[in-house]
Design a protein around this nucleic acid. Structure first.
Length: 580
RNA sequence: GGCCCCGUAGCUCAGCUGGAUAGAGCGACCGCCUCCUAAGCGGUAGGCCACAGGUUCGAAUCCUGUCGGGGUCGCCA
């Protein structure tokens, strides 16, 4: 059930009947027709720009609009159609129509708002992909929440979603991790060591060193690096990865695939991917110019292996090998994306930190080249999180080893609050995360505001039971809805009817924050109606001594609860039954 | 210097593939509890949508340029 879709069909069919110039109905102008809630509620329930879009230069849009309006009123669902402004047609829908929407929501239940928008297309969302060198911090958390919610959103909208984590377990950072752990190991077996230059000085590595000491005693105490580097690196990386998975689990994020960068090395997979590019003539040996405007001290002109990414929209060609002959980060990442393409995804989405912005073009170029433009790569850059507490910002520094971790967040505010707050901003805007605000119980805190609405809903159900009002799904579905005729009750229904549209728009742009904003609006409509009950007892949901009227009103409440639950479900937040 | 993101009310931010008189919360001011949770609701005040051009019947939205803030720029990932 999607009311906007239904009215849109009606408008388009009506237009076909009345137009004298069918040739002006090319596909593009039909696609430009919108059916949307008007800016002002006073205009009506829906507005369409059809006449404006379809009128050719010399005709008056208002004439076509007028004709359209007259024809539309013939439909039962349309109570009133009026021409306004330059040629909009504002529609007022019949009470019956709204009641029909409510019945549809009740019978669709959890499925209300689901759609086939994605047409079963296969989407791969790669997110988090943090180096396994330490616990996840706040920045990773935002990426994790975003990716996971996007996954939920796209599933809801009819895509087949795979959530994926790329483990960077092959680069220099793992060796750095190994050295840091080695320090901790030496400490654990009682050696005096000077800890002044560790890459990862965080305390969290101390237990790893101790575990090594337990297992191996002083076996590695006086050994040179090449003896232990790889083994300790693998060992520590595995432990860190387990911790990361625990962190993700505590946030409610479950990956479908963990893809190891290491698995690309020594298996010919990098070479195979690059061969694809080679065959398209996109790989060559060449010399890059140093970046302009930025002085690099030890710049040396050097011939190296380059990917001709400029052929696919990048600004400069990109190196695939470092000066020591090993691969750059880019090379295995090309192989990784080649693997994703080979796994037959229709759409790839990479969720990256904002500091990877400079990486986007080359990766898109690679995907475009490898798939001959058949697979699209969408990148979502996640901006920084600024943490605040008591009005004062605090800093994160990985080098100092002191940073706010995902675990800190969950322990202080909980997973649900963390997730919701992080989804109240679009991904490309910086997010201010205030610990105090997140826990505050007020209108200013959107998490609370939405949860409070849900708690009120639940309290109505509870009260109804106490009053002996039967509210099974079946009874609500068959309730006589004619008592639902107040403007504010319709306003709630109007918002509910927008839900499928909101889902589609959020999915279209890969923007789960739109769901959070929608829920905030829906909660607002509901709180408003609730409060009207104190002025006018006829608007209370529970009508003493009138079971049928109570059931009708509770049917509306049930619909609100269905949509709030669905919406929170997409965000990955558990609805609260009561506030404490 | 190149590239990417951002600039909307005093503050924090929405604004849907271009659409009507640009919205919400906070803060300020004025109201609403004998009544389903007042942890809420109503109202008032507050704007040259950074600036300048362009496209269009129509621009906060699209294009170009300028200014301001952030990110990034071979051998980090």
């Amino acid at each position: 059930m999607n009311l906007f879709e239904e009215i849109s069909q009606l408008v388009k069919e009506t237009l076909k009947v009345i137009t004298k110039r069918p040739e002006s109905f090319n596909r593009t102008s039909l696609e430009k027709i919108t059916i949307e809630p008007p800016r002002l509620a006073a205009y009506g329930d829906m507005a369409t720009n059809a006449a404006l879009v379809l009128t050719s230069k010399n005709d008056s849009p208002r004439d076509l609009a007028q004709e359209l309006a007259i024809k539309l009123t013939k439909d039962k669902r349309i109570l009133k159609a009026a021409v306004a402004g330059p040629g909009f047609v504002n529609l007022k829908l019949s009470l019956d129509c709204w009641h029909h929407v409510l019945k549809a929501i009740l019978s669709d239940g959890d499925n209300f708002g689901r759609s086939n928008f994605g047409a079963g297309k296969r989407v791969n969302i790669e997110f988090v992909s943090a180096n396994p060198t330490g616990p996840l911090h706040v920045g990773h958390t935002r990426g994790a929440v975003f990716g996971d919610a996007l996954g939920n959103l796209l599933s809801f909208a009819g895509y087949r979603v795979t959530r994926e984590y790329y483990i960077n377990d092959a680069g220099a950072q793992i060796e750095a991790l190994a050295r840091s752990v080695y320090f901790r190991y030496l400490q654990a077996i009682g050696k005096k060591v000077v800890v002044d230059d560790m890459d990862y000085p965080g305390e969290y590595l101390a237990p790893v060193g101790e575990a090594l000491a337990q297992q191996y005693g002083d076996k590695w105490a006086d050994q040179p690096e090449q003896v232990w580097l790889k083994e300790i690196g693998d060992y520590a990386g595995d432990i860190m990865m387990k911790k990361i998975q625990e962190d993700l689990a505590s946030l409610g994020v479950k990956m479908d695939v963990f893809f190891s960068e290491k698995s690309l090395y020594g298996t010919g997979r990098i070479e195979a991917a690059l061969k694809q590019l080679q065959e398209k003539g996109l790989i060559y040996e060449g010399i890059l110019d140093p970046p302009k405007g930025k002085f690099i001290e030890d710049w040396e002109r050097r011939e190296q292996t380059l990917f001709k990414s400029t052929e696919h929209g990048d600004d400069v060609d990109r190196p695939l090998k470092k000066s020591d002959g090993t691969w750059t980060y880019f090379a295995p990442d090309i192989a990784y994306h080649f693997d994703k393409i080979a796994r037959n995804f229709d759409i790839l989405i990479d969720v990256l930190g904002a500091d990877h912005g400079g990486y986007v073009k080359r990766m898109k170029a690679a995907v475009s080249a490898l798939s001959d433009g058949k697979v699209s790569l969408d990148t979502k850059l996640i901006q920084l999180v600024r943490l605040q507490k008591n009005g004062r910002p605090f800093k994160m520094s990985k080098r100092a080893g002191s940073f706010v971790t995902l675990r800190d967040l969950i322990e202080t505010v909980g997973a649900g609050v963390t997730r919701f707050v992080m989804l109240t901003r679009k991904n490309d805007a910086p997010l201010e995360f205030d610990f105090d605000k997140a826990l505050e119980q007020s209108r200013d805190n959107p998490v609370f505001y939405v949860q409070y609405a849900n708690a009120r809903v639940v309290s109505i159900f509870r009260r109804a039971k106490e009053e002996g009002i039967p509210i099974t799904d079946d009874m609500l579905r068959n309730a006589d809805l004619s008592v639902l005729n107040h403007e504010m009750e319709i306003a709630v229904l109007r918002k509910l009817a927008e839900w499928p549209r909101a889902v589609e728009m959020a999915a279209r742009s890969n923007e789960p924050h739109k769901i959070a904003f929608f829920l905030n609006e829906l909660a607002g409509e509901f709180h408003r109606l609730w409060n009207l009950g104190s002025d006018d007892s006829n608007l209370r949901f529970i009508q003493p001594n009138d079971i049928p009227a109570s059931q009708s009103k509770i049917a509306l409440v049930r619909a609100v609860s269905i949509v709030i639950s669905s919406g929170l479900g997409i965000l990955g937040v558990t609805p609260l039954q009561e506030m404490r």
